[in-house]
């Protein structure tokens, strides 16, 4: 083995990069979760279920906004030069996923507000009559409403994709050099959102539908993770070493136990049994999926920072 010593010792950089703590994984997870929620909302709106008073798509936009705001707050916490945050909105940098993200977030909020206003829940419409009026007017324009559904799905997709591209664009961290990362985070976001919506939905059929969908997303996620790993181990030495950080290195326990076993495989089995009516639906499986999705972001963000080009063989 080579002996490699450096006198650099910069904070956040040495001995291995650790610029991003809990804030960024939480933000990325929330981004994915809200992306999934928007896609589900959009689908239900598109399908015309917004008219149903009990449809979960009536509350999802509001929940989405609250959760996303929390995520943006954690993102803000991570910034080192906070007073200059507004500089993001004086420019658009086409090569920078962060710039894309900043602008996507700007358009996500109006979309969620519009979705919320399509059929405002009674709690608000009773207090704020003007909201009810807007809902009435909106519902008269069926195509407009449908388009709001489409925009939800599109922006949800972009948001979910962006959380992955944000990392995969950073070529200096071999573990993130994967074109599967956007898909992984999108599918994981959809799965977490399905699990979440499954818990908050009132209608049994919606819950059933989302549990089935979640099973589909979880199966897909297993394939995406497999392809992500295969892509790594069939690449260069640094990428192989990066994959080993997940497979047998210091992040292997978190990856195998929390992401794969507890976050995907076991909840999938539980939910398969549930949708086939072998057991009752409980919040156990969805909570496991959500926590698994969160841990996935932590593992990818942390392990990715740990990997680098120089002196591979971590």
């Amino acid at each position: 083995m080579n002996e490699y010593t450096t006198t650099r010792h910069n904070e956040l950089v040495d001995p291995s990069l650790h610029i991003w703590g809990w804030e960024i994984p939480v933000y990325l997870f929330i981004g994915g979760l809200v992306a999934g929620m928007m896609i589900i909302t959009g689908y239900f709106i598109f399908k015309g279920r917004y008219k149903d008073k009990a449809c979960v798509c009536r509350v999802l936009p509001l929940l989405g906004m609250i959760i996303l705001s929390a995520g943006m707050f954690t993102l803000f916490l991570d910034l080192e030069h906070k007073l200059y945050t507004w500089r993001l909105y004086l420019t658009f940098k086409v090569a920078s996923p962060m710039s894309w993200g900043a602008w996507i977030l700007i358009v996500v909020y109006p979309t969620m507000i519009a979705s919320f206003l399509i059929n405002v829940p009674e709690y608000f419409s009773k207090k704020f009559l003007w909201m009810d009026k807007i809902s009435e007017k909106l519902q008269q324009h069926k195509y407009a409403v449908k388009n709001i559904g489409v925009v939800n799905m599109l922006l949800g997709g972009l948001l979910g994709i962006y959380t992955g591209v944000l990392l995969s664009a950073l070529g200096a961290r071999p573990l993130w050099n994967s074109s599967m990362l956007w898909l992984l985070f999108l599918v994981s976001g959809l799965s977490a959102a399905s699990a979440f919506v499954h818990m908050v939905a009132k209608r049994v059929d919606e819950r059933e539908l989302l549990a089935k969908a979640d099973n589909g997303f979880l199966i897909l996620e297993i394939f995406v993770i497999a392809l992500f790993i295969i892509g790594m181990v069939t690449s260069t030495k640094v990428h192989i070493d990066s994959a080993l950080v997940l497979l047998s290195g210091i992040y292997a326990p978190a990856f195998w136990v929390f992401v794969l076993a507890l976050g995907i495989v076991i909840p999938l089995i539980i939910q398969l049994l549930a949708v086939n009516h072998k057991i009752k639906h409980t919040p156990v499986a969805p909570i496991m999926v959500i926590v698994g999705g969160l841990v996935l972001r932590f593992v990818i963000v942390y392990a990715g920072q740990y990997t680098h080009w120089v002196d591979a063989g971590f």
Binding site: L12, L17, I19, L79, E80, K82, Y84, L88, A169, L170
Partner: peptide, 9 residues
Amino acid sequence: IGCKACLAS
């Protein structure tokens, strides 16, 4: 803004 993307890149 101190987002640190450049550090990671």
